[in-house]
Design a protein around this nucleic acid. Structure first.
Length: 223
DNA sequence: GCGACAG
DNA sequence: ATCTTGTCGC
């Protein structure tokens, strides 16, 4: 299993410095195969009062949304949750569950931020950089930045801005529901992110890939 | 110094 | 994230 943080001394300060460095390597240009054939959703949950970390991955056909494969892995939790350092806590399990898939997805959707992060490296961006798999962050809440409320129309979105530049979108994936925070990770253009996510939204607030991964990681089913 | 703070 | 049932409302 490759360590996601080669040379990290374990301190939060070093983690932040590493994020700033890695963020400069993120590429905001569509770098995925077109047309997309597969998309996978990833999420992490915890058991045993947090002592065990569980990561789930669900691979879908990008057009039919048919589930092709579901995987789940468990490893000991290594770090507590620290705002801004989520990837250092969740990436090890996420990389393992990616390896558990029989095929690499053309695109990955992760629960959390892409570049809409204090130093530009949310868990989705870090995952994309570490794996080379194009990624998008689909979060339920803002971590950094702000933007106007999108109209209450399915598919409406507005720009999320931070430090004077756009870092993502506020996307009304479902009528009368709080908008999702969508931000590109690695190898996905800002202009593509929101439309891509809407492609896999059906009748729920979350797009199918992460919604299904959520269910697996959060206890409801297994396998 | 005082809040804010993905999962 | 997680502990937890029913309930009000679009």
């Amino acid at each position: 299993m490759p360590t996601a943080f080669e040379g990290w001394d374990g301190t939060p300060a070093a983690a932040r410095a590493m994020q700033a460095e890695l963020a400069s390597q993120v590429r905001l240009r569509d770098g995925f195969r077109k047309p997309l054939r597969t998309v996978a959703g990833f999420d992490v949950g915890f058991e045993d009062a947090g002592r065990t970390t569980r990561a789930a991955a669900v691979l879908l056909d990008a057009d039919s949304l048919q589930v092709l494969e579901s995987r789940c892995v468990r490893i000991p939790t290594s770090l507590p949750y620290i705002p801004g350092l989520l990837s250092f806590r969740e990436l090890p399990a996420l990389l393992q569950v990616l390896d558990a898939l029989s095929q690499t997805p053309d695109l990955a959707l992760l629960d959390g931020q892409g570049i809409a992060h204090p130093r530009g490296l949310g868990v989705a961006a870090h995952f994309g950089l570490a794996t080379g798999v194009p990624s998008i962050g689909v979060a339920k809440k803002i971590l950094t930045g702000s933007g106007p409320e999108p109209h209450d129309t399915r598919g409406a979105y507005t720009a999320l801005r931070h430090d004077g530049r756009q870092v993502g979108w506020l996307l009304r994936s479902k009528l009368h529901c709080r908008p999702l925070v969508v931000s590109p990770g690695h190898h996905v253009a800002m202009a593509s992110a929101a439309d891509l996510v809407m492609r896999w939204v059906t009748t729920y607030r979350l797009p199918e890939p992460t919604r299904l991964a959520d269910r697996l990681a959060s206890r409801r089913d297994d396998r």
